[in-house]
């Protein structure tokens, strides 16, 4: 029942809502990083989150995924809390968030994507290995499966992270700056995979920095600068007005009353 209600409430009523964020506020100590965010992400969109440095883009994803604890607000995935919907969600963290000198191979990292569905203690078997190899092939990295991860280029490392998320076989993909520091070939390879995901009906949410490619790559966009500035179809809201609002003025949010 509650799911139906949510659908009626939404502005884009022909779509099911993949992600719904209500009144989300996150702060590090006294400084709010996200302020009272309401966000609805319809199913099947390829969405960019844009905003200046420190706007809280990564924080938003991390709060949705439960990595960070918000001060207030709630997040639902297809109408239910994240904890119950984990298996529908995959995450591609920023490449720089891990130590690539860790002693492990490319295939091993991709296999980590299967750990969630395996649960505690159970080890990955043949089925998981096969799925991981397929994912490696999809990102064009099959030849590097036994390569130590520190011996991969930045673009290749990014593809490994992408493959790890693909293996999760989720419905919603969150990606934190997947295009950062990759060459043109990798960027095209990644965007093709993202478009394929959308074609398969998946929802993809990407923290993105390159404003020029937004209209080309994405069909949905959210402007964020501590507060949510705007969200909607790229063709309707990707304009100077919103860009100025997001990047031009320095939003200062104070929590003092």
């Amino acid at each position: 029942m509650s799911e139906i209600k949510i659908q009626e409430k939404t502005s884009v009523s022909e779509h099911k809502m993949a992600v719904q964020v209500d009144d989300l506020t996150v702060a590090y100590n006294y400084k709010p990083v996200l302020w009272d965010i309401d966000l609805e992400i319809p199913e099947g969109v390829l969405m960019a989150i844009v905003g200046p440095n420190g706007a809280g883009k990564s924080t938003l994803i991390k709060a949705i995924l439960g990595i960070l604890k918000p001060i207030a607000g709630s997040v639902t995935i297809y109408g239910k809390p994240y904890d119950e919907q984990r298996k529908l969600v995959a995450y591609v963290p920023q490449k720089g968030s891990v130590d690539w000198d860790f002693p492990t191979t490319a295939l091993d990292v991709v296999m980590m994507g299967t750990y969630g569905s395996l649960g505690w203690i159970k080890r990955p078997g043949l089925k998981e290995k096969k799925a991981s190899l397929e994912a490696l092939e999809k990102v064009g990295m099959l030849a590097f499966k036994n390569r130590q991860i520190s011996q991969l280029s930045g673009g290749q490392q990014q593809r490994i992270f992408l493959a790890r998320a693909l293996v999760q076989d989720a419905s919603i993909y969150f990606m934190d700056e997947p295009f950062q520091g990759v060459d043109a070939t990798t960027e095209i390879a990644i965007i093709n995979i993202l478009k394929e995901l959308r074609k398969a009906g998946k929802t993809v949410i990407v923290v993105h920095h390159d404003l020029q490619t937004v209209p080309e790559y994405f069909d949905w966009v959210t402007f964020l600068n501590v507060k949510k500035i705007a969200t909607g179809p790229v063709k309707d809201i990707f304009n100077d007005d919103n860009l100025t609002k997001t990047y031009g003025i320095n939003y200062k949010v104070s929590i003092q009353e």
């Binding site: 439960g66 963290p93 968030s97 130590d99 990292v109 980590m112 750990y115 505690w120 159970k122 790890r164």
Partner: peptide, 18 residues
Amino acid sequence: KEFKLFLFDADYAKTLGF
């Protein structure tokens, strides 16, 4: 498996429900 995942990428481990 859990130790390895945690050592390499603790945030990711969290999103997987560990």
